[in-house]
Amino acid sequence: MAVFQAALLNELEKLYKKKKVLVAILLSLAVIVIGQLVIVGVRSGFGLRGTGSVEFPMLVLSVVVNTILPLFTALVAIDSFSGEFTQNSMRITLTRPVSRFKIYTAKITSIVLFILGALLLLLVFSLLAGFIFNTNSATLDSLGRTVFSYFVSLLPLTVLALAIALLANIFKSGIAVFFVSILTFLALKVLGVLFSQYSSLFLTTQLDWYNLFLVNSFPILKILRQFLIMLGSGIMLFTAGFYIFDKKEF
């Protein structure tokens, strides 16, 4: 465990040292500021309320979970694998007395922690903006559901990170991975609209699964099914990704 912790710390430090984290923070804040400006504009321009204090974080989540969060997940995951493959710094990591399984797990964990950090940042700042600039519409129930929605969004994003890590291990070039990911993402989005009866199987639809937790009746069966689908695909992707990573020669 101590070895894994060291590997994870190592990965986190590498992540932290990169400018991408700073860019992620700035972009997240920009989304909140722009979103709030749009809401204020709509309110004074069209006479609509736009959002209340709790709806604003939900609006932010619905936007970022389909745009900048997958994008940053992809960038960080690609950087963590393809970047190190091409710079040959992966060799340095591998020369340490750490098994490849632990390195792979540490890399994935650091990406997940990055996503969690981004979600928390968005949650805190959008809640702040929501309460400062919007009419109060919060109840304990809706506030709880909002916070919960942010946390459950971590799961589909983790699956996404695993999928991109697999792609990064298949293709050598980071740019290729990036384009394949984006094209697949868009294709799945379109397929989700065209075949709406099967859309719950697509990862792009699962990104919106936090909506299930907002339903009054709490559709536990549906949530369980979605959870198992994500768990199943997560296990598959992790195993496949690790298999290739394990077999790779540097």
């Binding site: 009866q197 069966l221 549906k222 099914r225 768990l231 199943g232 296990i235």
Partner: peptide, 25 residues
């Protein structure tokens, strides 16, 4: 171990996916 976990993942995905499609909302 890898083989088993991949199979478990696939089965899990396949069964719940089928159940999900079959379930009438």
């Amino acid at each position: 171990v890898m083989l088993v976990s991949f199979t478990v993942g696939t089965l899990l995905l396949a069964t719940t996916a089928l159940a999900d499609i079959a379930s009438k909302s």
